[in-house]
Simulated assay, not measured.
Amino acid sequence: MTATRSTRQRDVIARVLDGAEGPLAVGDVLARAQADLPGLGVATVYRTLKLLTEQGRIHPVTLDGETRYEPAGRGHHHHFSCTRCGRVFTLHACPVALPHGTVYPGGFIVEAHEVTLYGQCPACAGARD
């Protein structure tokens, strides 16, 4: 029974991450997964995130000092962090034209880049105070 339960928990957590609009913090994963598994605990979420990371199914993203998780294999993308509601969204269009090998002024050779844009998401921008 333990293996089945563990697999169910893993499947629910993986499904939560797959369906998210962007990388999720541990607390967000826990809250969303508890909709299907009300008894799910935070320790199980941490263990499952570690396992899924080791399996290469997800990877951690650090934004503003907080580790969030998203599915692996989504290709080159960036993030938008809403300063009002705190949600993070995946952006599939790259706002920076710096391909691998570009020589940046000063002799810096670009190997990769990460961009996080900050502002208000559509829901918050449309909300009235």
Rank of each mutant, 00 (worst) to 15 (best):
M1I: 02
M1F: 07
M1C: 03
T2E: 14
T4D: 13
T4H: 02
T4P: 03
R5V: 12
T7L: 13
T7Y: 07
T7M: 06
R8G: 11
R10P: 05
I13E: 08
A14W: 00
R15C: 11
V16A: 01
A20Y: 01
E21K: 07
G22M: 02
P23L: 11
A25N: 01
V26M: 01
G27V: 00
D28C: 01
V29G: 00
V29L: 10
L30C: 04
R32D: 13
A33I: 14
L37V: 02
L37E: 13
G39N: 14
L40G: 06
V42L: 07
A43Q: 07
A43D: 12
Y46C: 05
L49V: 01
K50C: 05
L51H: 03
L51V: 08
L52E: 11
E54I: 04
E54M: 01
E54A: 10
Q55H: 09
G56F: 04
H59Q: 11
G65P: 15
T67A: 12
T67Q: 15
Y69N: 00
P71F: 03
G73K: 06
G73E: 00
R74Q: 14
R74A: 08
G75N: 10
H77T: 05
H78F: 14
F80Y: 12
S81T: 03
C82H: 01
C82T: 03
C82I: 06
C82Y: 00
T83H: 05
T83V: 04
R84H: 09
R84E: 14
R84F: 06
R87K: 06
V88Q: 00
F89M: 02
L91K: 09
C94V: 13
V96Q: 10
V96T: 14
A97W: 08
A97R: 11
P99L: 02
T102S: 08
Y104W: 13
Y104M: 08
Y104L: 12
Y104Q: 04
P105A: 04
P105D: 03
G107P: 01
I109Q: 09
V110H: 10
V110M: 09
E111D: 11
E111Q: 08
T116P: 06
Y118T: 05
Q120W: 14
Q120I: 00
C121F: 00
C121L: 14
C121E: 08
P122Q: 15
A123L: 13
A123Y: 04
C124N: 12
C124L: 11
C124Y: 01
G126L: 01
A127Q: 01
A127M: 15
D129E: 13
